[in-house]
C-alpha cells in the first residue's frame, strides 16, 4: 500500500513530468491559455495516459516479451497511443464541440506527446507491476494536469498585466514556468525513490 502511495506522490509532485522531467512541454505551453481548456486537456491526458500505461503494460507482457520483439516497443506503443487519442478525439467531438475546438491541434498532438510515450516507456524500464504501472500513468497525468491547471490560472492573470512588449507571449510564459519549476524543487526528497 505504501509503495503505491509513494509511486503516486512521486509521479504527481516530486518527479512531476512537466516541471522536473520536462516532458509534455508542448501542450503545457499550448493549451494553458484558458482555464476551461486546461481542465479539459487535463482530463483528456489523464484518460489517455492511464489507458496508455495499462495498454502498454499488457502489450509488453503479452506480446512483446513472449514473442521477443522488444525492439519494436516504440512502434507498438505509438500505435496504441494513436488509437487511444483518436478515440478520445471522437468522443470529445461528440460530447463537447467547444472544448474540441479549443484544444484544436493539441488534441491529436497528444499522440506525439512525449509525456504519454514517456510514461509507457518508463513503466517498462522501471519494471512496475500491472497496478503500479497503471497508478504511475495516472499519477503522472494528474501531475501534468495539476501543473497545467495551475499554470493556466497564472496565465489568465498575466493576460491583464501590462507586460513589456518584448516579453509578451512566450517569454513571460517561459519565465513563469521556470519559476514554477523552481518552486517545485521544494518537493525534492519528499519521497525517496
Amino acid at each position: 500500500m505504501t509503495e503505491f502511495g509513494v509511486i503516486l506522490l512521486s509521479a504527481v509532485l516530486v518527479n512531476n513530468y512537466v516541471l522536473t522531467k520536462f516532458l509534455g512541454i508542448c501542450p503545457f505551453l499550448g493549451v494553458s491559455g484558458k482555464l476551461e481548456t486546461a481542465i479539459g486537456m487535463s482530463f483528456a491526458v489523464m484518460f489517455v495516459m492511464t489507458l496508455a500505461s495499462t495498454a502498454s503494460w499488457i502489450i509488453q507482457q503479452l506480446i512483446l516479451i513472449p514473442f521477443d520483439i522488444m525492439y519494436l516497443q516504440t512502434v507498438f506503443f505509438i500505435l496504441i497511443i494513436a488509437a487511444l487519442v483518436q478515440f478520445v478525439e471522437m468522443v470529445m467531438h461528440k460530447t463537447s464541440p467547444v472544448l474540441y475546438q479549443g484544444l484544436g491541434i493539441f488534441l491529436p498532438l497528444i499522440t506525439t506527446n512525449c509525456a504519454v510515450l514517456g510514461v509507457a516507456i518508463l513503466n517498462v524500464q522501471q519494471d512496475y507491476s500491472f497496478f503500479a504501472s497503471v497508478l504511475y500513468g495516472f499519477g503522472a497525468a494528474v501531475g501534468f494536469g495539476l501543473v497545467l491547471v495551475l499554470f493556466s490560472g497564472l496565465r489568465e492573470r498575466l493576460e491583464a498585466a501590462p507586460i513589456p512588449e518584448v516579453f509578451k507571449g512566450s517569454p513571460i510564459i517561459l519565465i513563469t514556468a521556470g519559476m514554477m519549476a523552481l518552486a517545485f524543487m521544494g518537493f525534492a526528497g519528499l519521497v525517496k525513490v
Binding site: F67, I69, L79, A83, F87, M90, H93
Partner: peptide
C-alpha cells in the same frame, strides 16, 4: 512474425476505431 503480430494488432484497433467512429458520429 513481428510483421504479422503488428498487422493483426493494427487490424483489431482499426476495426475498433471504425466502430467507434460510427457510434460517435457527429
Amino acid at each position: 512474425y513481428p510483421v504479422f503480430i503488428f498487422a493483426i494488432l493494427a487490424l483489431v484497433i482499426g476495426v475498433g476505431l471504425a466502430l467507434a467512429s460510427r457510434y460517435f458520429h457527429v
